[in-house]
Amino acid sequence: MKKYISFFRLRFSMELQYRAAALAGVATQFFWGAMEILMFRAFYRTNPGAFPMTLQATCAYVWLQQAFLALFVTWVLENEIFDSILNGNIAYELCRPVNIYNMWFSRNLAMRISGAVLRCIPILLFAAFLPAPYGLMAPAGLTNFFLFFLTLLLGVGVTVAFCMLVYMLCFFTISPMGLRIVTVSMVEFLSGGIIPLPFLPDGVKQIIELLPFASMQNVPLRIYSGDLTGGGTLRALLLQVFWLCILVAAGKILDALAMKKVTVQGG
């Protein structure tokens, strides 16, 4: 456990070093959020009746999405890991007395959390002071807030576990780049990164909500604003736990297979 914490600290102080980049990131994400909201406002004005969420919940969704961007985006996969698999440097990693899956999992987690912690505060603060309904409202209730936190953590877990699958699959494919491109753009849409999932038409929506991708950012962001309540929350929470277990188990199996492959074939 200690080595994972020290890795986290290292990442964090690195992030601090690049504070100009962090600042620029905040500005960019703030702009992104504002434009996104202006776009939704245009649709809302045109036909409020067709809106599947309240405008306020949509805005909260957008701001939280921007604030916690680093937690959920899949395009920040670590190039280092891809390279080490491709060029065989992975052999060095195998020499260390740690399990590859656990190490990469915690590395990835550390990277996401340290990236988000610094950036989320200014964005959340800014958004909180914007006038309703365009700003970030207070959470719908204390329970919502608690559940938001819980599902946020589970969501990050599912995201990382999914990324681990991509890494692990790289051991078995000759073209990790292709795999990466396809998964990244697919996940972005299916997880609600382009438009929130409630905006999808019925039928499509119900199916997508069952997929592991819906257990990433979709759940916490909608719980916060009270868009997801009651039985829906429970179902989403259980789905998150379910997918986390499945993805981690699948990753572990692939990990074992990959290690066998590497040690037999020499990388």
């Binding site: 649709f43 599947p52 753009s185 849409f189 382009i194 438009i195 905006f199 999808l200 038409p201």
Partner: peptide
């Protein structure tokens, strides 16, 4: 993805 975003928004709204 850009296209999908537009497509699904217009499945719901006829114009903007």
């Amino acid at each position: 993805n850009l296209f999908l975003g537009i497509y699904f928004m217009f499945r719901r709204f006829s114009q903007v």
